[in-house]
């Protein structure tokens, strides 16, 4: 029978849990092999970063959704880590094929790459649970009827102190690396992209300005427009 929105959400949550619980919240053997092939093995940094970000995420999730949700926050984070490892492995496999390289030391020791990837994975988990949704009204999540709307995008960027542009850079590769994402979740990530491009990326201090300046100094043929105030 046709699925009601609630039934559809329950199904996608169930699929996410089954899919990610089986892969666990540790690096797979393949992923550990990529780590070992690095000139500098990133394993300890990855684990330390996850420990630190896990505490920040759970605490902020509790603040945003209510103290009774700290456990939910921890559960969301565990699922997010499972997706983070899964997508990372898929990305490295595709990069290995594309570049004929096995040593990803630079990328895997790039803190922003890891933080962005984890943020994107957590955004997918929260969107799957309906906690990060644009349906309840607008950019700031509006006054939705679920307590968790306080974690609507771009909440995760603030929690991880992550530049929107760095999150943006990851989205397309994330979608490409995880073909099992549902239509709704892809749509959600696309809306995040649009929000970033329309507003957030142009905030003061965004790395986008540096990039534009580099392009300009790099002698790009056409004159670069100064960013709108």
């Amino acid at each position: 029978p046709p699925q009601t929105p609630i039934r559809a959400a329950m199904t996608s949550i169930q699929m996410l849990r089954v899919d990610l619980t089986s892969s666990g919240d540790q690096p797979s053997t393949n992923l550990a092999t990529y780590f070992k092939h690095c000139t500098v093995d990133p394993t300890q940094d990855v684990l330390k970063r996850l420990e630190m970000l896990g505490q920040v995420f759970s605490q902020r999730f509790g603040q945003a959704a209510g103290p009774h949700c700290v456990v939910n926050g921890r559960q969301r984070f565990t699922l997010g880590v499972g997706l983070y490892y899964k997508v990372m492995e898929a990305m490295l496999k595709s990069e290995e094929k594309r570049l004929s390289v096995q040593n990803f030391s630079k990328l895997l020791n790039h803190s922003t790459f890891h933080t962005s990837l984890l943020a994107c994975a957590l955004e997918v988990v929260m969107a799957t649970y309906g906690e990060s949704s644009f349906k309840n009204g607008g950019f700031n999540g509006g006054g939705g009827d679920t307590a968790e709307t306080g974690v609507c995008f771009p909440w995760i960027l603030d929690v991880f102190n992550l530049a929107a542009f760095d999150f943006y850079k990851l989205i397309e590769s994330f979608i490409k690396a995880e073909p099992t994402l549902s239509k709704d979740i892809v749509k959600h990530l696309e809306t995040c992209e649009n929000l970033i491009m329309e507003r957030i990326a142009w905030r003061t201090g965004s790395p986008l300005f540096d990039l534009l300046k580099q392009e300009h100094e790099g002698g790009a043929a056409e004159q670069v427009e100064t960013p709108a105030s």
Partner: peptide, 21 residues
């Protein structure tokens, strides 16, 4: 099943996007 518009070129992957090529 989705209609996401992929825009990255063949020579643009996650390594280039994070300046690790």
């Amino acid at each position: 099943s989705h209609d996401y518009h992929f825009g990255l070129e063949e020579h643009e992957g996650i390594s280039e996007l994070f300046d690790c090529d």
